[in-house]
Amino acid sequence: MALTPIQAYSIIFFTGGFLYCGIEILYRGYTHISMFFTAGVCFLLIGAVEALFHARFSLLPQMLLCGLMITTIEYLVGLLVNHQLHLNVWDYTGYPFNIQGQICLLNSTLWFLLSGPAILLFDFLRHILLNVPLPHYHIL
C-alpha cells in the first residue's frame, strides 16, 4: 500500500523531531518537547529548500541557506519559549557572538554542517516513502 503525501511528510516530520531530540539528549543530556516540534518543522523546511533550489544551487549554498533558516527559527522559538513563556529551555549568553542568548555563532555553524546530512536524509526518506527519484548532488 502506497503512502499518501500527508502520511509520508508526517513520518518525515517525526523523524526530524526524534533525531534532533536524540542528538540533543546525547549532547546535553536532556531535551524539551518544544525542540521536537521545532526540529520537525525545520526538517520539513530543509526539504523544501532542497526541492526549491536543488536545480539552481549546489549542496554548499543550500546548506548555508538551511543553516540561516534554522538559526532564524531557533531565534524565533527562543523568543517565544524562553522570553515569553519563561521556560528557559536554552541560554547561550555565555557563548561568544550570541544574540539575546537565543542564538550563537557556534550553533549556527553546527546547523550549517548538519544541514548537509539532513538534506540527504530528507531526499532518501522521500525516495523510500513516495518513490521520488533521488537527485544528483553537486557539492560546489
Rank of each mutant, 00 (worst) to 15 (best):
H83E: 11
I33T: 10
W111Y: 15
G94H: 11
F112K: 00
G40P: 04
A118Y: 01
C21T: 15
Y75D: 07
F43R: 02
D91T: 10
T4C: 05
I103H: 04
R56L: 14
T38C: 15
E74Q: 05
T4W: 09
H86V: 11
A8C: 05
F13N: 09
D91H: 08
V81S: 02
G94F: 05
Q102P: 04
I11V: 14
I70V: 15
Y92E: 06
C42G: 02
S10T: 15
Y27W: 15
F18R: 04
S108E: 00
A118S: 15
V77H: 02
I33A: 11
L80T: 13
N82T: 11
N107V: 10
L76M: 11
D123F: 01
C104Q: 06
P5T: 06
L120E: 03
G40R: 05
F14W: 08
L113D: 00
G29V: 06
F13L: 10
Y9C: 00
M69Y: 04
F53W: 09
L106C: 05
L114E: 00
D91S: 08
A55T: 13
Q102K: 11
G101Y: 07
L113A: 14
L52Y: 10
L60P: 01
R28K: 15
L87D: 03
F53P: 00
G78H: 07
M1T: 07
L113Y: 00
L3W: 12
L19N: 06
A2L: 09
Q102Y: 01
G17F: 07
T38E: 04
A118L: 04
P96D: 06
Y75R: 06
I33F: 11
E50A: 13
Y75S: 05
I99K: 12
V41Q: 01
A39C: 07
